[in-house]
Write a protein that binds this DNA or RNA. Structure first.
Lengths: 252, 252
DNA sequence: AACAACGTTTCATTAGGTGGAACGGAGAAA
DNA sequence: TTTCTCCGTTCCACCTAATGAAACGTTGTT
């Protein structure tokens, strides 16, 4: 069997890892039976059962008494309400994102990096009938899409090379061409993507730093390729860069 | 030491329980250091440290690299987006709740029971400057407030007596007077509260059942006592009961 | 300089998590 | 009807792996 675990240098608690994996099963399906979960996490039936009971007792999972299947519990809701700290970009940036959306009428998304993923922590969708939809909380890989490239490019050098090491190890990128691309993005100050992750979708993304020049997030404008043409993008880039520099002043 | 664990008949996994307790610390404060968490959960430093590393590796917790403290991670956000199943009252009931709020201009809340708590899974606040604020996801005890009483009263008999057993064991209620109260609520079909949980706050609550007459949720109108007088409430009750019976038809 | 507080690492001990096995029930197939 | 099969749940002996004491490195305070 292949070792899918990331280099397990750190000492972690296996039982907890397994329990969290079970929770994450529910990002794919909203209701699951014991057998289904067992298959997904490939653990023993009784192990999964015991972990489920623990999660249930703490309210992180509910057993639907009608279908006899498991669902996420309301403790998740409770916790998600406490995500937004006083210095949370997802809250602070909202008004400015709203303003920008109104101006360009395309979907505006805010991303942060989390390990080898990026996460959409805030979004305001375009009001046009054909638009980029943008579920908040969505997790995407860090090697495709404009925002991903920004989140790698403008990370500090040590972190950046560590990220690229891992992506290379997982054979997700070719190091040489990836670094070339990154250099171009750094000199431009923004990244674009045309139908890179999603057919028919295009986007521009720029970095947002905090006051001490540390990369915090990436903000993007995205929409259908036929509307977000190269020319239109060129107009938007200046606007987007201005917004980003204003947002940078909001955060410490 | 007193045994604070609920009658531990069920076999659960200690390490996971502890990890979840750590997560729940963040409902009280948004950023915590290791020492603070250690104190809150009263476990050994290194135990908490290891559990935190596990939570961090899975993205449920982030270490803020500036403050060196821990915060909730974006995996919580991701999971919370999958809470809403197709049959989720919090989504289905929203339009009708909105309509009711517009009509009475007081805060409308939707609660479900979770163990010995009730949880506000949906809310639309009044637009008046003085109003009942209603954070979604908030968790309250099951023995005070109109919605709590409804959620106990209209539960099926076996479940209801099990709830009361536990509340009694924790010395939260006096069984005799509680049952008296419940009987009255059952014959009325609704419950009220005046400054019971919160000074200056009043509310009316009624049950919502599914098509097979099983209790699903409680819906309430709440506001300041001086606005939500007994007379005003009497007007609202009929309205609220009608809404509840309509909502009952939406859910299986 | 001495001290205190905190985060992190190491390691021997044994608590407790694990998975095999077996049970009971509900459907489906024969 | 009986016989399978699949699923959730309970039980238990084994031995992994979680635990907490102790020690260390840092940072900030007296």
């Amino acid at each position: 069997m292949v070792d899918l675990n990331q280099n397990s240098e750190k000492h972690t608690v296996r039982a907890v890892e397994r329990a969290l994996d079970i929770l994450l099963c529910f990002t794919e399906a909203s209701e699951l039976g014991l057998a289904q979960i067992t298959k997904k996490v490939s653990l023993h039936k009784s192990t999964v059962f015991r972990l489920l009971q623990t999660l249930e007792q703490k309210g992180f999972i509910i057993k639907n008494s009608e279908t006899e299947k498991y669902r996420l519990g309301y403790r998740i809701l409770e916790l998600s309400n406490h995500l937004s700290g006083i210095n949370d970009p997802a809250i602070l940036f909202l008004p400015e994102m709203q303003r920008l959306r109104n101006e360009v009428d395309e979907t505006i998304s805010l991303y942060v990096r989390d390990g080898l993923d990026r996460i959409r922590i805030q979004a305001i969708e375009s009001e046009q009938p054909i638009r980029r939809v943008a579920p908040i909380g969505a997790r995407m890989p860090l090697y495709v899409g404009a925002a991903s490239k920004v989140l790698v490019t403008f990370e500090n050098p040590i972190e950046r090379s560590s990220i690229m090491d891992k992506l290379e190890a997982q054979q997700m990128i070719d190091r040489v061409s990836f670094e070339e691309m990154i250099n171009e993005i750094r000199s431009n100050g923004f990244a674009t993507s045309f139908e890179e992750r999603e057919l028919g979708a295009a986007s521009i993304a720029v970095p947002i730093f905090n006051k001490s020049k540390k990369l915090i997030a990436a903000i993007s404008i995205s929409g259908p390729v036929n509307r977000l043409t190269h020319e239109k993008m060129n107009n938007n880039i200046k606007e987007l860069l201005e917004v980003a520099s204003q947002l940078s002043n909001l955060i410490h």
